[in-house]
Simulated assay, not measured.
Amino acid sequence: MTDPALLRDEPFTPAGGSSELVFAGKVWDVRRDTFGYNGDQLVREYVAHTGAVAIVALDADGRVLLIQQYRHPIRHRDWEIPAGLLDVAGEPPEQAARRELAEEADMTAAEWTPLTSVFTTPGGNDEIVHIYLAQHLTRTDGAFDRDGEEADIRVEWVPLADAVTAVLEGRMRNGILAVGVLAAAERLRRAEPGG
Protein backbone atom coordinates (compact mmCIF):
# COMPACT_ATOMS: atom_id res chain seq x y z
CA MET A 1 0.00 0.00 0.00
CA THR A 2 1.79 3.13 -1.18
CA ASP A 3 -1.01 5.67 -1.09
CA PRO A 4 -1.75 6.71 2.54
CA ALA A 5 -5.24 7.82 1.44
CA LEU A 6 -6.06 4.14 0.83
CA LEU A 7 -5.48 3.29 4.49
CA ARG A 8 -9.08 3.00 5.70
CA ASP A 9 -11.58 0.52 7.10
CA GLU A 10 -13.68 -1.19 4.43
CA PRO A 11 -17.40 -1.94 4.86
CA PHE A 12 -18.26 -5.57 4.13
CA THR A 13 -21.56 -7.45 4.29
CA PRO A 14 -21.37 -11.26 4.22
CA ALA A 15 -23.74 -13.01 1.83
CA GLY A 16 -26.80 -14.67 3.30
CA GLY A 17 -27.20 -15.41 6.96
CA SER A 18 -29.61 -14.71 9.76
CA SER A 19 -29.79 -12.64 12.92
CA GLU A 20 -31.72 -13.41 16.08
CA LEU A 21 -32.29 -11.50 19.28
CA VAL A 22 -30.74 -13.49 22.14
CA PHE A 23 -31.34 -11.01 24.95
CA ALA A 24 -33.32 -7.76 25.05
CA GLY A 25 -31.66 -5.47 27.57
CA LYS A 26 -32.64 -2.19 29.18
CA VAL A 27 -30.05 -0.28 27.15
CA TRP A 28 -28.46 -2.80 24.73
CA ASP A 29 -29.46 -6.07 23.15
CA VAL A 30 -27.42 -9.19 22.43
CA ARG A 31 -27.75 -10.67 18.94
CA ARG A 32 -26.60 -13.96 17.40
CA ASP A 33 -25.77 -13.81 13.70
CA THR A 34 -25.15 -16.80 11.45
CA PHE A 35 -23.44 -16.05 8.14
CA GLY A 36 -21.16 -17.41 5.46
CA TYR A 37 -17.56 -16.20 5.32
CA ASN A 38 -14.61 -17.64 3.35
CA GLY A 39 -16.55 -20.85 2.71
CA ASP A 40 -17.40 -21.41 6.37
CA GLN A 41 -20.67 -20.97 8.24
CA LEU A 42 -19.94 -18.77 11.27
CA VAL A 43 -21.94 -17.88 14.38
CA ARG A 44 -21.13 -14.67 16.25
CA GLU A 45 -22.82 -13.12 19.28
CA TYR A 46 -22.39 -9.42 20.00
CA VAL A 47 -23.90 -6.45 21.78
CA ALA A 48 -26.10 -4.40 19.46
CA HIS A 49 -25.26 -0.85 20.52
CA THR A 50 -27.03 2.45 19.85
CA GLY A 51 -23.75 4.30 19.28
CA ALA A 52 -22.48 7.22 21.32
CA VAL A 53 -20.79 10.59 21.34
CA ALA A 54 -17.95 11.94 23.45
CA ILE A 55 -16.58 15.42 23.99
CA VAL A 56 -13.10 16.78 24.59
CA ALA A 57 -14.10 20.08 26.22
CA LEU A 58 -11.08 22.38 26.17
CA ASP A 59 -11.02 25.73 27.96
CA ALA A 60 -9.06 28.89 27.05
CA ASP A 61 -6.21 27.78 29.35
CA GLY A 62 -5.68 24.51 27.46
CA ARG A 63 -7.32 22.40 30.15
CA VAL A 64 -9.58 19.45 29.35
CA LEU A 65 -12.71 18.68 31.34
CA LEU A 66 -12.48 15.21 32.90
CA ILE A 67 -15.11 13.42 34.92
CA GLN A 68 -14.63 10.46 37.20
CA GLN A 69 -17.43 8.03 37.96
CA TYR A 70 -17.95 4.43 39.01
CA ARG A 71 -18.18 1.86 36.20
CA HIS A 72 -19.42 -1.47 37.50
CA PRO A 73 -18.11 -3.84 34.77
CA ILE A 74 -14.50 -2.76 35.48
CA ARG A 75 -14.99 -2.10 39.23
CA HIS A 76 -13.23 1.27 38.95
CA ARG A 77 -14.03 4.94 39.24
CA ASP A 78 -12.35 5.72 35.96
CA TRP A 79 -11.55 9.07 34.40
CA GLU A 80 -13.58 9.87 31.30
CA ILE A 81 -14.51 12.70 29.00
CA PRO A 82 -18.21 13.66 28.88
CA ALA A 83 -20.06 11.14 26.72
CA GLY A 84 -23.47 9.65 26.14
CA LEU A 85 -25.62 7.43 24.01
CA LEU A 86 -27.17 8.19 20.64
CA ASP A 87 -30.52 7.28 22.15
CA VAL A 88 -32.76 10.05 20.79
CA ALA A 89 -34.33 8.97 17.49
CA GLY A 90 -33.12 11.05 14.56
CA GLU A 91 -30.76 13.20 16.64
CA PRO A 92 -27.54 13.98 14.71
CA PRO A 93 -24.32 13.08 16.58
CA GLU A 94 -23.17 16.71 17.02
CA GLN A 95 -26.52 17.67 18.55
CA ALA A 96 -26.25 14.66 20.87
CA ALA A 97 -22.76 15.84 21.87
CA ARG A 98 -24.13 19.30 22.68
CA ARG A 99 -26.87 17.71 24.79
CA GLU A 100 -24.47 15.40 26.63
CA LEU A 101 -22.02 18.21 27.45
CA ALA A 102 -24.90 20.13 29.02
CA GLU A 103 -26.26 17.11 30.88
CA GLU A 104 -22.96 15.73 32.19
CA ALA A 105 -20.95 18.90 32.74
CA ASP A 106 -23.42 21.81 32.79
CA MET A 107 -21.53 23.41 29.89
CA THR A 108 -22.19 24.71 26.40
CA ALA A 109 -19.63 25.40 23.68
CA ALA A 110 -19.63 27.94 20.86
CA GLU A 111 -17.19 25.97 18.67
CA TRP A 112 -17.54 22.28 17.76
CA THR A 113 -15.01 20.32 15.69
CA PRO A 114 -15.32 16.63 14.80
CA LEU A 115 -12.14 14.87 15.99
CA THR A 116 -12.66 11.23 15.02
CA SER A 117 -15.01 8.28 15.24
CA VAL A 118 -13.99 4.92 16.70
CA PHE A 119 -15.32 1.37 16.92
CA THR A 120 -14.83 0.63 20.62
CA THR A 121 -14.75 -3.18 20.63
CA PRO A 122 -15.36 -4.47 17.08
CA GLY A 123 -15.05 -8.11 18.14
CA GLY A 124 -17.77 -7.80 20.79
CA ASN A 125 -20.15 -4.98 19.85
CA ASP A 126 -21.10 -2.72 16.97
CA GLU A 127 -20.69 0.53 18.93
CA ILE A 128 -19.29 3.57 17.16
CA VAL A 129 -18.40 6.67 19.16
CA HIS A 130 -18.17 10.09 17.49
CA ILE A 131 -15.70 12.31 19.36
CA TYR A 132 -15.86 16.11 19.18
CA LEU A 133 -13.61 18.94 20.31
CA ALA A 134 -15.66 21.61 22.10
CA GLN A 135 -14.15 25.06 22.68
CA HIS A 136 -15.26 28.52 23.82
CA LEU A 137 -17.11 27.05 26.77
CA THR A 138 -19.79 28.63 28.93
CA ARG A 139 -21.27 27.28 32.15
CA THR A 140 -25.05 26.75 31.99
CA ASP A 141 -27.44 28.02 34.65
CA GLY A 142 -29.26 24.88 35.72
CA ALA A 143 -27.63 21.64 36.78
CA PHE A 144 -29.20 18.41 35.60
CA ASP A 145 -30.45 15.84 38.11
CA ARG A 146 -27.98 12.99 38.45
CA ASP A 147 -28.56 9.63 40.11
CA GLY A 148 -26.97 6.19 40.25
CA GLU A 149 -23.32 6.26 39.19
CA GLU A 150 -23.70 9.87 38.08
CA ALA A 151 -24.78 11.10 41.54
CA ASP A 152 -21.19 11.52 42.75
CA ILE A 153 -19.38 12.42 39.54
CA ARG A 154 -16.08 14.16 40.21
CA VAL A 155 -15.21 16.97 37.77
CA GLU A 156 -11.66 18.21 37.19
CA TRP A 157 -10.05 20.61 34.73
CA VAL A 158 -6.68 19.12 33.77
CA PRO A 159 -3.99 20.53 31.44
CA LEU A 160 -4.31 18.62 28.17
CA ALA A 161 -0.61 17.69 28.28
CA ASP A 162 -1.10 16.13 31.74
CA ALA A 163 -4.03 14.06 30.46
CA VAL A 164 -1.91 12.87 27.51
CA THR A 165 0.90 11.89 29.90
CA ALA A 166 -1.52 10.01 32.17
CA VAL A 167 -2.81 8.06 29.14
CA LEU A 168 0.69 7.26 27.87
CA GLU A 169 1.79 6.14 31.34
CA GLY A 170 -1.26 3.88 31.70
CA ARG A 171 -2.75 5.78 34.64
CA MET A 172 -5.96 6.59 32.74
CA ARG A 173 -7.18 3.63 30.69
CA ASN A 174 -10.60 4.63 29.40
CA GLY A 175 -10.36 4.04 25.65
CA ILE A 176 -12.60 6.91 24.58
CA LEU A 177 -10.73 9.33 26.84
CA ALA A 178 -7.41 8.08 25.42
CA VAL A 179 -8.46 8.48 21.80
CA GLY A 180 -10.09 11.85 22.51
CA VAL A 181 -7.21 13.55 24.34
CA LEU A 182 -4.57 12.13 21.98
CA ALA A 183 -6.57 13.21 18.91
CA ALA A 184 -7.16 16.68 20.38
CA ALA A 185 -3.48 17.12 21.26
CA GLU A 186 -2.40 16.06 17.79
CA ARG A 187 -5.00 18.27 16.09
CA LEU A 188 -3.80 21.28 18.10
CA ARG A 189 -0.15 20.43 17.39
CA ARG A 190 -0.81 20.29 13.66
CA ALA A 191 -2.62 23.64 13.81
CA GLU A 192 0.46 25.35 15.30
CA PRO A 193 2.86 27.12 12.93
CA GLY A 194 5.36 24.51 11.76
CA GLY A 195 3.15 21.71 13.16
Rank of each mutant, 00 (worst) to 15 (best):
G195F: 09
G142F: 08
V27S: 14
Q41D: 00
R44L: 02
A15I: 00
V167I: 09
L21T: 14
P92L: 09
Y132S: 10
T116E: 14
A54V: 07
D59W: 12
I81E: 09
G123Q: 02
A57H: 12
V88Y: 08
Q41C: 00
S117P: 04
R190N: 09
V27K: 07
T120E: 13
R63C: 15
R63W: 11
G175T: 07
Y132R: 02
V179E: 03
H72K: 06
V30M: 04
A185W: 00
G175L: 07
A134G: 09
P92A: 15
Y70L: 04
G170Y: 02
A54K: 08
F119V: 09
R31P: 15
P4L: 11
D147N: 02
R154F: 03
A166V: 06
E127N: 14
E94A: 07
G123E: 12
E103D: 04
V30G: 05
D147E: 08
V22K: 05
G170I: 02
I55F: 04
I153M: 14
I81W: 05
L168Q: 08
R98G: 09
S18R: 01
G170T: 10
G148Y: 01
A178R: 10
G16D: 00
L115H: 06
D141L: 01
A96E: 08
H72S: 12
R187M: 10
G25F: 06
I55T: 02
R189L: 12
Y132F: 14
S18E: 03
P92E: 15
L66N: 13
G39P: 00
G195M: 04
V88R: 04
N174E: 13
E149M: 11
D29R: 06
D141K: 07
R187G: 02
D61I: 12
E20L: 11
E100K: 10
T34P: 03
V118E: 09
E103W: 01
D59N: 14
R171W: 13
I131T: 03
T13N: 04
I176H: 05
G51L: 04
D9F: 14
T140S: 00
T108F: 08
G175S: 13
L101I: 09
L101W: 01
L6C: 11
V64W: 07
R71C: 09
A24Y: 08
D145G: 04
T138W: 10
Q135A: 13
L42R: 00
V64F: 08
G124F: 14
A178I: 08
L58A: 13
V30S: 11
Y70S: 10
D87P: 08
Y70N: 03
A191H: 06
P193H: 12
E104F: 08
V129G: 14
D9R: 10
A183M: 15
L137W: 02
V22H: 05
F23E: 03
L86D: 14
